[in-house]
Amino acid sequence: MSFVRTLRGDIPKGQLGFTYSHEHIVCRPAFWAERGEDDLLLDDKEKSKLDVLDFKRHGGQTIIDATAVDYGRDVDAVYAIMEETGVQIVGTAGFNKSFLWNAKVKEELKPIIGNYNTYYEWIDAKSINELADFVIREVEEGLEGTPFKGGQVKFGTGYNRITPLEEKTLRAVARAHHETKAPVHSHTEVGTMGLEQIELLRSENVNLAYVSFGHMDRNPDPYYHEQMATTGAYLCFDGIAKIKYAPESTRIHLLLELVRKGYENQILISGDTARKTYYKHYDYGLGLEYIIAKWIPRFIDEANKAGYDGDKLVEKFFVTNPANCFAFKR
C-alpha cells in the first residue's frame, strides 16, 4: 500500500484529504534575518497556528510544509501545530536554492552537519553522496536530529540558471529519492529552468512521475507548461492570491489549458504563504483560508462556464493528485 509520511508518522495515502501542496508555517530564514527582512520571518508559532486552524475550519486536512534546512525551519514548532490543530503536516528534507546558502548555519545544526560557518561552505565541502546521506537520514531518522521525519525531498535552482552547487544538491536529492522512495519536489525560481532540471534528473534515472515542480504559475507560458507536463511530472501552481505577479484570471486560464490538453491528473494548488503580510493572524493578510474559502468558488464557477465540472477538478487538484504525488513509491 502506498503511504504518505507526515511528521507524526506514515498514513495511507487515502487519508491525506484536502491538501495544500506548498506552504511555509514556521521558519526563520537566516538569509533574510541577517538582512533585517522581518516580513519573511514566520517566527510566531501561535499566530501561524491560528491560520492553520482557519484552514481546518473550512475543511482543510493536510499541508505540505516545503521548508528545507537552509530556510530556517522550526521542526518542533511545526510538529506542535500539527498536534494541537489536528491538521496533518508533511515535512521536507533536502535544500532550497544557492543564494540562500551565504547565510550562517544555525548553531543547533552544526553537531549534525559539521562545524561549517555557512550553508555554502557545507555544501561545497561535501560530496554528492555525502549530501545524499544527510537527506536520507532526514527522511528515515528525522529532520535536524528530531524524531519527526521528512515526507518529501527537495532541491532548487535560481532564476534562469543552475549553479554547480545547485546541480550538486539536485543530484544528491535524486540519489536520496532512489534510496528512500520519497517523492521529489523542485523549487524553480520564477518558474524557470524546469526543463533543464528535468534533463539532470533524467541523467540520475529519476522517473518524472515522482516529481513535482513548484512555482509554475510564475512563468505563465502554456507551451512551457505542456512541455513540462508531457514528462509525467506534477506542476504546482502555488502563487494563488499573489496579484502582484498575475491576476487570478491568468492562473485559472493556465490551469484550464492544462485540463483541456488532458493533464488534470498532474496539477497541484497552493499559496506558498511565506510572508507575515500574507498571513491573516500576523499582519491582516488573506491567510491560509483564502484558497479553500474564496478562490475555490471562483475557480469552480469559471471551470463550469468553460464546460468542465469544477467540483471534480477541485477534488483532483486538492485531494486525488496530492495523494498520488506525495506517496512513497515502494
Rank of each mutant, 00 (worst) to 15 (best):
281 H>G: 08
96 N>S: 13
238 D>V: 11
71 Y>F: 13
199 E>D: 12
154 K>T: 08
105 V>D: 12
138 E>N: 09
107 E>I: 04
174 A>E: 01
140 E>V: 06
14 G>T: 05
107 E>G: 11
12 P>N: 09
128 I>W: 04
327 A>V: 01
325 C>Y: 00
220 P>I: 12
85 T>F: 04
42 L>I: 14
183 P>R: 12
11 I>A: 03
253 H>A: 11
184 V>W: 00
270 S>H: 05
212 S>W: 01
175 R>I: 03
210 Y>H: 14
152 Q>M: 06
329 K>M: 09
31 F>G: 06
49 K>R: 15
42 L>S: 06
127 S>A: 10
61 Q>E: 13
2 S>T: 15
296 I>G: 01
108 E>D: 13
90 V>Y: 03
157 T>K: 02
315 E>H: 10
72 G>W: 00
160 N>G: 07
133 D>Q: 05
75 V>F: 08
7 L>V: 05
327 A>Q: 00
284 Y>Q: 14
56 K>I: 01
23 E>Y: 05
32 W>H: 15
205 N>Y: 06
118 T>D: 07
82 M>K: 08
277 T>P: 07
4 V>W: 00
275 R>G: 02
51 D>A: 12
310 G>L: 02
221 D>M: 11
131 L>W: 02
168 K>N: 09
160 N>I: 15
189 E>R: 02
192 T>Y: 07
126 K>T: 02
188 T>D: 01
7 L>Y: 05
239 G>P: 13
159 Y>A: 13
212 S>F: 00
224 Y>G: 15
148 F>S: 05
143 L>E: 11
279 Y>E: 05
139 V>W: 02
106 K>W: 15
199 E>R: 10
88 Q>K: 14
153 V>C: 08
